[in-house]
Computed example of a mutant assay.
Amino acid sequence: MTPAPQYARLHTAGPVSIVTLDRPERLNAIGAGLLGDLHRAMVAAQADPDTRAIVLTGAGRAFCAGDDLKEFNEQAASSASVADTCERIQQITRDIMFGPKLVIGAAHGYAAGGGFEWVLNCDMVVAADNLVAFFPEMALGHFVTGGVTHLLPQAVGYQKAMELIVLGERLDAHALQRLGLVNRVVPLEAMLPTAIELATQVASRSALATAQLKRVMTTGLGPQLIAALEHERQAAMACFSDADTWRRVASFARSRL
């Protein structure tokens, strides 16, 4: 029997664990398999007693191209499949933000939709200079997730957050840095080494102090972020079931043929 493909890999080197989205032929697009494998990898990294910091990155030409629209019919097939998909997407945000270890994003190529959301969930981000990030959800009739409705207005202000989410403006790495959404911009070949170096610096700090810092900071976000995750889940479920969303996704799929 051929083993099932693994869409997220965990590699630990000393005090740093690297979680890699590994579906490069689909630009690491988000499907059921990737969600399950990423959840398991993040839980394992967060629970590993030898890991002090985590790097989250993507294999191939992109960090993550967002939802895999080729799986849309399967995801939207029933109320149960819609609920399961939306819950598993939100679980990744909880894995990143509510675990004790700091997560350093290393993002390149495209970070679209859910991929952009996961970048915003990271504690620090190293961006390759070819990074392009945007939210395509509103054009497709989808809804943003990942706590973005709470996190993004805090970071960039209400009006700018509305612009980015509703209009889907594409931001390059330097624009993201000017908005305070990434910490470093480096050449592509330096992205992962820089992220590992940053994670190694984090790992050299007190494990107790950094865990407490993350707990305090996410606790401060807690009630609002938890509420945002639930409101987004419900809104995403409603959008999945909307006839207009089906038409928009079908039209987008035809345009790509």
Rank of each mutant, 00 (worst) to 15 (best):
M1V: 12
P3D: 14
A4K: 12
A4L: 15
Q6E: 15
Q6P: 05
R9C: 04
P15V: 02
T20V: 10
D22G: 00
R23H: 08
E25N: 09
L27T: 02
I30Y: 00
G31C: 06
V43I: 10
A45T: 06
A45N: 06
A45G: 06
D48I: 01
P49Q: 04
D50I: 03
D50K: 11
L56G: 07
L56R: 08
G60E: 13
F63W: 09
D68W: 04
E71V: 10
Q75V: 07
Q75M: 13
S79Q: 14
V82D: 02
C86W: 01
Q90L: 11
I92P: 02
T93I: 06
R94D: 09
I96R: 10
F98P: 02
G99D: 14
G105Y: 03
A106N: 10
A107F: 15
H108T: 07
Y110T: 13
A112W: 07
V119S: 07
V119P: 14
C122G: 11
V125E: 05
V125L: 08
V126D: 04
A128P: 02
V132S: 03
L140N: 03
G141Q: 02
H142C: 10
F143W: 09
G146I: 04
V148Q: 09
L151P: 00
L151A: 08
L152H: 04
E169G: 04
R170V: 05
R170A: 14
H174G: 00
H174Q: 09
A175S: 08
Q177T: 00
L179C: 00
G180V: 01
R184N: 05
P187W: 04
A190N: 09
M191G: 01
P193F: 06
T194E: 12
T194F: 05
I196Q: 10
E197N: 11
E197G: 14
A199H: 03
Q201P: 01
A207G: 10
M217K: 09
L221A: 14
G222W: 01
P223L: 13
P223A: 13
Q224M: 12
A227I: 02
H231C: 07
M237F: 02
C239Q: 14
S241G: 11
R247L: 12
S251E: 15
F252I: 04
